[in-house]
């Protein structure tokens, strides 16, 4: 067969098999965790801000389907150099653009998990949110 899948283009599979920025930061400015109960995906995002509040480094760890893990890997690179405001302005379209593939409606939650975790982490850091864990079902 080997007709391949639209959703599993090389870039996604590459990030899934060789995730970038995988692990934990030693001195993150903020850390947050989240899950997608539908898939059982789990993501932890560590974010380090510089003195100006710009995102200096991002690391992620977790477990789950290829879409959730590849999305976290790609996001970890994309966020570097962005401000927290820019992070908070991102929406699911940005994530789908970043992934560069059509995400079927049932899988959008997998795709946006890392973004939601990073955004909630930033809001908690700013004192705008009180939550121990993010869920895509919230």
């Amino acid at each position: 067969m080997g007709m391949g899948s639209d959703m599993y283009r090389q870039q996604i599979l590459d990030h899934y098999k060789s995730p970038r920025n995988y692990g934990e930061l030693e001195d993150p400015t903020f850390t947050h965790v989240g899950e997608n109960p539908m898939c059982g995906d789990e993501i932890r995002m560590d974010v380090k801000l510089d003195d100006e509040g710009t995102i200096e480094r991002v690391a992620f760890s977790g477990d789950g389907c290829a879409i959730s893990q590849a999305s976290a890997s790609m996001l970890s690179g994309k966020l570097t150099g962005k401000t927290v405001d820019e992070l908070l302005e991102m929406d699911r379209n940005d994530i789908i653009d970043m992934l560069g593939v059509d995400i079927s409606p049932m899988r959008v939650k997998c795709a946006v998990l890392a973004e939601k975790v990073a955004q909630d982490g930033a809001k908690i850091h700013r004192g705008e949110l009180d939550k121990s864990k993010t869920s895509t079902e919230d």
Binding site: M1, M7, Y8, G64, A66, I67, S104, R107
Partner: peptide, 14 residues
């Protein structure tokens, strides 16, 4: 080697 949801998505492509 493949998460069940990824598997179902690939199945769906078939």
């Amino acid at each position: 080697s493949v998460h069940a949801h990824d598997l179902a998505s690939i199945m769906n492509d078939h």
